[in-house]
Design a protein around this nucleic acid. Sequence first.
DNA 1: TCTGGGGTCCTAGGACCC
DNA 2: TCTGGGGTCCTAGGACCC
Length: 359
Amino acid sequence: MSQGRSSWVLHVDLDQFIAAVEVLRRPELAGKPVIVGGRGDPTERAVVSTASYEAREFGVGSGMPLRIAARKAPEAVILPVDGEAYTRASEEVMATLHAQPRATVQVLGWDEAFIGIQTEDPEGYARQVQQAVRERTRLHCSVGIGDTLIRAKVATGFGKPRGVFRLTAENWLEVMGDRPTIDLWGVGAKISRRLAGLGITTVAELASADPDGLVNEFGPKMGPWYAQLGRGDGARVVDDTPWVARGHSRETTFQRDLTESAQVEEAVRQLVARVLEDVAAEGRPVVGLTLKVRYAPFLTTTFNKKVAETFDRAIVLARALELVGRIEPNRPIRLLGLRVDLPMPEDARDGHTPTRGGW
DNA sequence: TCTGGGGTCCTAGGACCC
DNA sequence: TCTGGGGTCCTAGGACCC
């Protein structure tokens, strides 16, 4: 590590991004509890997109029903989601990252990206990145430094807010070993429970788990992937290949449950029309169609239909309406939400397409 | 008045073919 | 009358992330 420049992965993550963007254009909100979600109306069915740190002190967090958030933080200012504003801010941030010297940038979403960099002083580089982002956008970010993408990503959490943290093979188990598996990126409530069923509750236990047991439980891909996650191992190279969408979707939640098939048809027509706009812009044909029907918060039914490569709106709509015909034909309709997914052809990048396991 | 909307990827099982 | 295995495609469903 002392000779020349070593390769590092930096993970840059904006702090309370959406709330921060809102505060920038409403300076009077600085230091106040701010919640952004839905149309900003806590009486509607909607959830919190982001809460400011002040709002989080009341126990408000992302994904929480807006109604409950408003109850927990009655003083909070609740604002509607303004996707275009966040897209603009995001573009400024990413342009700043791309302008960093020698940086390879892999954008992960609105508010985070990996940077691949060769340097002797990753902390110094990270501080430079933070300063550049702050000067150009007035937004603050945290930076994780790692020798793999996974370690960099996990490291960021220890840097928040506005900090820098380094996580490598050297200190991974020391820092993460005793933590529950759910703290890992990619392990949620369900998987951590299944891991516990195998006697694995901590990251250290997962890191040294019997590979065969994991394959038995999770299959040939996910089994080895979870073992690798436990060790923090994986890809070390930041991949700046332009991202190509695998498909597009539109989802909606009804303020009042739908009960008539005519209403369902109309809703599907609208969703299909909206998602086809994205597909038309991409210029690649649709190759399938999935209709997800939400009957209750946790009860979803999926209908798939293979579609021969087509750009034809009428055909796509007709296929979607065929699927509508399969929704509970013998029972009264009571629909909470709908989602239409339109996959597009795999991009021919000779097997390069990064997968979750590729991390 | 109980849960958004946009994504990604994996697995199991049945149908079908050789 | 009894009995294969492997591969691929498609559908349904699940899990997770921001």
